[in-house]
Design a protein around this nucleic acid. Structure first.
Lengths: 200, 200
DNA sequence: GGGAGTTTGGACTTCTCAGTCCAGATATGA
DNA sequence: TCATATCTGGACTGAGAAGTCCAAACTCCC
């Protein structure tokens, strides 16, 4: 049996995710199978609980850039990043989470920023550093602006899919579709930024 | 002096945009300089007002693809699309509008879909058709999937910028930054999908 | 001028929800 | 066993907001 605190966080994550910041504390207490008083004892108030839940569940996008990155061909590396994103970040619950953060941004502007720093920003920086390294090795040519190139690669991956998801459109990502898109993103990027790059 | 109805819609647009669906009807009535009763006479209820306001203010993304499109070089055409997007859709009020739609999507799922159909979808289709035409003319090579290519171009333009904006990060788009990004998007796309395309 | 319709302000009802309070139950630890 | 701490359920308060009601004022057209 989880501790009361853990169950509350669990329930809060579930309910905030699906209903936004507008869930009632009663509902959270009920789902957590805990009395309302315990909830207030543990977290003091709704805002505190919300922030604790955000802190606990962190951000979604994580860069799969590890030590082995240097040994692999950029195209494979990039396809992998895309694959990971499509596999983990396109699920309904992850999309709902992002949507919730955006929705709550009106009430808690700092939350969106914290989310950005912990998620997309991290990934962007990791990608950008990796690209700079690859550029030094002569395996990429970002024209000296790896950050912009990284931004564009991330955009390629997330762009339209994310827009659709956030607006509530269904996203159907079968394994073959994931593979197709991941390869497509990597190919496009390599055509644009590969060392065989054509001038303007 | 605008009609009461027009003033209400104006006020609703302003307040829904900045505060989300949670503005009070009293606040709307006050900003519209109209009594609460008039508001209810005109619109019957909050939900009706909200939807009327959405219908009135339509979607943001519009495709600048007109008759002259065929005569222009694809690169210029694409840069123009990007320029238009950056100029019109990155303002705080447009971003706030999109954010509000996403936030309200929890309560009114059909709203997000309507927005998608009226905005991004339209633009996507227009771009896709244009690309198919250019491909027939031998000026682009989308590999037979103009829709996916169009998606990727849109992603390139909107991607990271939109993510940041929706999360509440400041977006600084000076005219030179707009120009730089617009050219960059068009260049990348042409490198990836131009007729001089290199294989794999 | 007069009558029909609309607008106004503000009081009022009803509802939901955050947060509090409390008395009794339950667990924990010496 | 007893004492301390925590948990429980449920009642309660207070605030805010949607929507209603109404009598008086206003507008506009005949």
């Amino acid at each position: 049996m989880l501790s009361a605190r853990a169950r509350i966080l669990e329930a809060a994550a579930e309910l905030f995710r699906t209903h936004g910041y507008d869930v009632s504390m009663d509902a959270i207490a009920q789902v957590a199978n805990v009395s309302k008083q315990t909830l207030y004892n543990q977290f003091g108030g709704k805002e505190v609980l919300f922030k604790a839940m955000i802190a606990e569940h962190g951000a979604i996008m994580r860069a799969p850039l590890n030590a082995s990155a240097l040994e692999r061909h950029p195209r494979e590396m990039l396809a992998d990043v895309a694959r990971q994103y499509y596999t983990h970040a396109c699920g309904t619950s992850e999309i709902a989470y992002t949507r919730m953060i955006i929705g709550a941004g009106q009430q808690f502007p700092e939350m969106g920023q914290a989310y950005y720093e912990a998620g997309p920003k991290q990934m962007l920086d990791a990608l950008s550093q990796w690209m700079a390294r690859e550029e030094r090795l002569g395996r990429l040519d970002t024209g000296g602006d790896p950050l912009l190139a990284a931004e564009h690669f991330l955009s390629l991956i997330t762009g339209h899919i994310e827009t659709k998801g956030l607006l509530g459109l269904p996203i159907e990502m079968s394994p073959t579709e994931i593979e197709r898109r991941a390869r497509f993103c990597a190919d496009i990027f390599m055509r644009a930024f590969g060392p065989q790059r054509l001038l303007g």
